[in-house]
Amino acid sequence: MKFVVNGTSVDVSVPGDTPLLWVLRDHLDLTGTKFGCGMAQCGACTVHLDGRAIRSCVTPVVEVSGRAVRTIEGLADGEQLHPIQEAWIAAAAPQCGYCQSGQIMSAVALLAAVPSPTDADIDAALSPNLCRCATYPRIREAIHRAAARMRDAG
């Protein structure tokens, strides 16, 4: 099975119905993407497939064959964090941190589609992502902050 992860081609030999999540975590050692429920209920496993946010726990790896996957490890440019990651730090959003990779991937996809999201846009895009520590207000704040910065940066 060949596909691209964070700009690098990979080739894994696993049964095609293996969820992408477990290929990332157990075969490619990309552990930033998390397991939370295994049934598209929590968003901890959110990654991008051709730029769109998907739940990798219910995505058979055969579906990503030949396509481009981006994970939390692919956001920063070396030491330079993505503006959303910086906004997350400025808002001190994470608590336990376990859900945050998925939250951030959902937020990145949202801002790519809607550069100036309303609260309702954020509700719609981020509600698939559970946070048991309930950091939601700070995530909302971070998204607005990142949107403003990315607009300013043009």
């Binding site: 998390k34 939390i72 920063a76 964090l81 990651q85 001190a92 994470p94 941190g97 945050q100 990779s101």
Partner: peptide, 17 residues
């Protein structure tokens, strides 16, 4: 600032899992 923020926004924080 919390000292675990960078690890927790880059996916590098190590959990038991």
């Amino acid at each position: 600032p919390r000292n675990d923020l960078r690890a927790k926004v880059t996916g590098t924080a190590q959990f038991g899992v």
